[in-house]
Deep mutational scan, measured.
Amino acid sequence: MAASAHGSVWGPLRLGIPGLCCRRPPLGLYARMRRLPGPEVSGRSVAAASGPGAWGTDHYCLELLRKRDYEGYLCSLLLPAESRSSVFALRAFNVELAQVKDSVSEKTIGLMRMQFWKKTVEDIYCDNPPHQPVAIELWKAVKRHNLTKRWLMKIVDEREKNLDDKAYRNIKELENYAENTQSSLLYLTLEILGIKDLHADHAASHIGKAQGIVTCLRATPYHGSRRKVFLPMDICMLHGVSQEDFLRRNQDKNVRDVIYDIASQAHLHLKHARSFHKTVPVKAFPAFLQTVSLEDFLKKIQRVDFDIFHPSLQQKNTLLPLYLYIQSWRKTY
């Protein structure tokens, strides 16, 4: 089996927390979720979201995140109150960019949308954001926290390059993509939290790379249903696996070995980020709550012996909000 052949990389499970039942964490995340308004986002309300009498641009960002990046939404709820709305805006910006690729039928249209967001970032730093909910909220975040323009532009530029429907040539190319998107998002989150620390940035770099790799793995069944495969070609070739094997949902050992190798790289990034947690300011830990969902996925895929098409991998963990709150309460990542 794939797991038994390579099992030495995987460390002990961390979500089991001995003695936790003896201490009762304060009510927090679930209460916040219940208090949030929840009407559906419609095209009509989106168009009017920044106008008078609408929910408001902040509510639009929150709803977009809740629907399109639920794990990011849950993590954002546990940030300090003064930072929450800015991170909602930042993550909503990322969602807007991420959904361009799947929402257009022609690359030219995707490039036009990316050009809109490039100009939007430029206009935000000229205090002239367009009348668009996410743009307005992002402008507020930039003004409030003096966010670095370079990180925002890196996210747009990398998403634009990724409009080509090509597999990553190697794991390094996937890591570079993750660094310029997910890690950049974390650098900006640290700025919102008021953290300027080399060790925190180092952790953000590795956690962002782990996030990018896990996202690529999780999306494999969806991409396969659209006749697309984006997994690193070098690892596929190493194990003699073709793109057609993934399109046919082949579950042979060599296919699972490909998934094992890729998942192991995410695991190593996560492990390395945690190896120097004592040197990272505690104030930075809330920015890294996504490690909970990353670890949850890596454990699940290990349990199914790296069968990327196993139905259990597509099921939401209903206990994730609780695990996130516990992680926040324990002040760790």
Rank of each mutant, 00 (worst) to 15 (best):
D296T: 06
T120S: 13
S205M: 05
V282D: 13
T148R: 08
E191A: 07
Y70W: 08
L294Y: 01
S264A: 15
L231F: 05
D157Y: 11
A263F: 04
G51K: 09
E160V: 15
N180H: 11
C126A: 15
T57F: 15
F288I: 00
P232F: 02
R144H: 06
S86A: 14
K67R: 10
R91D: 00
D127Q: 07
H239W: 03
Q265Y: 12
Q99G: 15
G224L: 14
P133V: 07
W117G: 00
V292L: 13
Q314I: 11
G53H: 11
L147T: 00
L198T: 05
N146H: 15
L186Y: 11
R113I: 07
G212V: 02
D164M: 11
K331F: 08
L185F: 07
F276V: 08
E71H: 09
D69G: 01
A203V: 11
R274I: 02
I301F: 02
V241Y: 01
G53V: 14
G224H: 14
A287M: 04
D58K: 14
K119D: 13
G240N: 14
Y222R: 08
W139L: 05
V134G: 04
N94M: 04
L62C: 12
L97K: 00
H131N: 13
S184M: 14
K196L: 08
R66D: 02
L270E: 01
S50R: 08
L193Y: 02
H206V: 01
R227F: 13
E179P: 01
E175C: 05
R249S: 12
D127F: 02
L79T: 15
K101L: 14
I109H: 10
R66C: 06
K161H: 13
E173K: 02
N176L: 13
D201M: 04
Q115K: 09
T332D: 13
L64T: 14
I235C: 10
D234C: 01
H239G: 02
P133M: 07
R274A: 03
R159W: 04
E71R: 02
I326W: 13
V156Q: 03
Y125R: 01
I308L: 13
I136D: 02
S184R: 10
H199M: 11
I213V: 10
K228G: 11
V255F: 12
F88G: 14
K209Q: 06
D261F: 05
V258W: 02
E191P: 01
K253D: 15
D157V: 11
G110C: 12
N254A: 15
D307T: 01
K228E: 11
R91W: 06
V258H: 00
E160W: 13
K119G: 07
W117P: 01
V304P: 00
Y260I: 05
P52D: 11
I136M: 12
E96S: 13
Y260W: 15
K140P: 01
H223P: 03
L65A: 09
I136P: 00
Y60G: 05
L138H: 02
T215A: 09
S264H: 06
R84C: 06
K118Q: 10
D252L: 09
K119C: 06
H199F: 11
E71K: 02
L138Q: 00
A219F: 04
F309N: 08
E96R: 05
T189H: 12
V280W: 02
L185N: 04
L163A: 08
R330K: 12
P311M: 08
A92D: 06
V241I: 11
G72C: 08
Q132R: 09
D234Q: 06
F88C: 14
D245A: 09
W151N: 05
S103M: 13
K278N: 08
S293H: 13
Q99V: 08
F246I: 15
P221Y: 09
S103I: 10
L289R: 06
V229D: 02
F93E: 01
L111Q: 09
S184D: 01
E96V: 08
P133I: 06
I308K: 03
F93I: 01
L270I: 09
N317F: 09
L188M: 09
N94C: 05
Q314H: 09
A167N: 13
Q132S: 14
V46L: 14
H145I: 03
L90C: 09
V292A: 09
R274G: 02
L65Q: 05
D58S: 12
K101V: 14
W55N: 15
P281Q: 05
Y222K: 08
L174D: 02
T57L: 14
D102E: 14
R84M: 10
T120N: 02
A284Y: 00
L78H: 05
I124G: 00
I213E: 00
T332G: 11
A219N: 05
A200G: 04
G194A: 07
L163Q: 07
A200P: 01
I326N: 06
D261Q: 11
L62M: 08
R144N: 08
R274T: 02
W117A: 05
E106Q: 10
I207T: 03
Q265S: 09
L79I: 11
D58Y: 07
K166C: 15
Y260C: 06
H310M: 00
R227W: 14
S85I: 09
I301Q: 00
N146S: 12
L238C: 12
L320G: 03
Q243V: 04
H59S: 11
L78V: 10
A135T: 05
D234G: 03
D165N: 08
T291N: 04
A203L: 03
E175W: 01
W139N: 06
G208Y: 00
F246K: 02
W329M: 10
K101A: 14
N170M: 04
A141M: 04
P80Y: 02
I301D: 01
S205P: 00
E96Y: 05
M112R: 10
A92I: 03
K119W: 03
I301K: 01
P130R: 06
D257N: 11
S50P: 13
A284D: 01
I213N: 00
L78G: 06
K283L: 13
P130Q: 08
L190E: 01
A98Y: 05
K166S: 13
L78F: 10
I259S: 03
P311N: 09
Y60N: 06
P133A: 15
A266N: 01
V104Y: 13
L163K: 04
A273M: 00
M237C: 10
L319F: 09
A49P: 07
E71V: 10
I136F: 13
K118P: 00
S83Q: 14
L217T: 02
R218A: 07
Q251V: 14
L163S: 06
D69L: 00
H145D: 06
Q211E: 14
A81G: 13
K107E: 10
W151I: 06
G110L: 07
L190G: 01
L78W: 04
G56T: 13
S86Y: 07
D296E: 11
H267W: 14
K118I: 04
I308Y: 00
D296W: 09
W139D: 03
Q243S: 06
I207D: 01
A141V: 08
I207A: 01
D123F: 05
N250Q: 13
R84V: 09
E173Y: 03
A89T: 04
H310L: 01
Y177Q: 07
V280Q: 00
Y325S: 07
T189F: 13
P130D: 05
F246E: 02
A273K: 02
L62N: 07
L193D: 01
P286N: 10
V46W: 07
V255W: 10
R303M: 08
H267V: 09
A200L: 00
A200F: 01
V258G: 02
D201W: 04
R159T: 04
E137C: 07
V142F: 04
L313P: 00
L77A: 04
N176P: 00
L298D: 00
F288T: 02
W139V: 03
K161S: 14
S103N: 14
L294I: 13
Q251A: 15
K118A: 09
W151Y: 06
D102M: 09
T57K: 15
A203E: 00
M153W: 11
D123M: 15
L163R: 04
L65D: 00
F230R: 07
L174P: 01
L185D: 01
H269K: 01
S275Y: 06
S103K: 05
L163I: 13
K154I: 04
A178S: 13
Q115D: 12
I109Q: 09
T181H: 03
I109M: 10
A210C: 12
A54G: 09
